[in-house]
């Protein structure tokens, strides 16, 4: 999802580890100062920081359209949405910091390309309709993943997710609203919406990560209460929720294998191209280089401003000390 392929530490067998597992099983939240296994701590740092990086990098594809939104109102809405994502990144970085990693370390990991972020943000936003598709599908998929994370065993992460989830509904709805307006417009506008769905459908399904049978990290994460559902479970839920919405819009989901299964009460659907997914994760997606370059440029261009603020704060403190 926003954190795909998180490497998971192993559980140990000491008395302390056993007590810790019992606490998790009883549903007691773990807090920053509580004892925790090193594997649990490291897994959470990786997952939360990846999630944070995704929120931050996730601003770029939509930021691309702020200056070109078709009306002042759409521009204000998109700006507010992207601003929320910056906030989500902030909540999450702070949650990760409670586990003993510094903000600078995480920033460094993102800027150097060492850290991962969600594969979805390495695709380009080519038309205005992509703002609709991203809000509707990408934020829709994010919600699917983040709602169960509100019950994550780690308190600071779960509370950050509660804040995030409150804000996400606006994101998905504004995206759907963009799609709806296009679909109710001219033939060309509707074709734009269809084209955006065609390009974003499969990358959105990949957001949930590899199929369960290939997902090596899930089991321990689930035992530790870091993960509540498997990748395939969430993907299925997303398809079941989204296909009727596409139909409502009068759009066609680009999957010839998609069909309603009377017996299971769910949709059957095709397999995403996992080789594409792994290429994007490895850094070879259409926009990986641009995204990293944009983050590095923002960081470097902001250096004089950060330094200025620090110098001002130092001066204030010296004045207070002198008084």
């Amino acid at each position: 999802m926003y954190a795909q392929l998180v490497e998971t530490g192993a559980a140990e067998t000491s008395e302390k580890d056993r007590e810790f597992q019992e606490k998790i099983d009883r549903g007691v939240r773990i807090e920053a100062n509580d004892w925790m296994p090193e594997g649990y701590r490291k897994t959470l740092i990786r997952q939360i920081s990846q999630h944070a990086h995704s929120e931050i990098v996730g601003q770029l594809p939509e930021g691309n359209w702020i200056t070109r939104a078709p009306s002042l109102q759409r521009k204000a809405i998109l700006l507010a949405k992207v601003q929320d994502e910056a906030g989500h990144g902030l909540y999450l970085y702070c949650a990760a910091e409670t586990l003993g990693i510094s903000r600078d370390e995480m920033t460094e990991q993102l800027l150097s390309g060492k850290a991962k972020y969600s594969s979805i943000f390495n695709y380009p936003t080519l038309t205005w309709a992509d703002m609709g598709a991203v809000g509707w599908l990408v934020d829709g998929a994010a919600i699917m993943n983040q709602v169960p994370l509100q019950r994550c065993s780690y308190g600071p992460y779960s509370r950050a997710m509660i804040r995030v989830c409150k804000e996400e509904s606006f994101h998905q709805r504004q995206g759907f609203d963009v799609m709806r307006q296009l679909c109710e417009g001219t033939e060309e506008q509707k074709a734009m919406a269809q084209d955006a769905l065609n390009r974003w459908w499969w990358p959105s399904l990949m957001m949930f990560g590899p199929s369960d049978k290939d997902s090596v990290h899930s089991e321990q994460s689930m035992r530790w209460g870091i993960k509540q559902n498997t990748n395939d479970e969430l993907r299925q839920k997303f398809v079941d929720q989204t296909v009727p919405q596409a139909e409502w819009l009068g759009l066609t989901v680009p999957d010839p294998e998609l069909k309603w299964n009377e017996e299971t009460g769910c949709y059957d659907f095709g397999e995403p191209d996992w080789s594409e997914f792994f290429e994007v994760i490895k850094g070879n997606g259409p926009c990986n280089k641009d995204r990293l370059a944009a983050r590095n440029k923002a960081w470097d261009d902001g250096a004089w401003y950060r330094d200025g603020l620090t110098a001002h704060a130092d001066k204030q403190n010296q004045q207070i000390a002198a008084e």
């Binding site: 109102q73 204000a76 809405i77 507010a80 929320d84 829709g140 509904s169 606006f170 998905q172 709805r173 504004q174 759907f176 609203d177 929720q241 009727p244 919405q245 409502w248």
Partner: peptide, 19 residues
């Protein structure tokens, strides 16, 4: 003045389902 930050600003027809 930024009422669009609230999800209820966007009218989602009931038959579209939860969003």
């Amino acid at each position: 003045s930024k009422v669009y930050r609230h999800p209820t600003f966007f009218e989602i027809p009931e038959d579209v389902g939860a969003m």
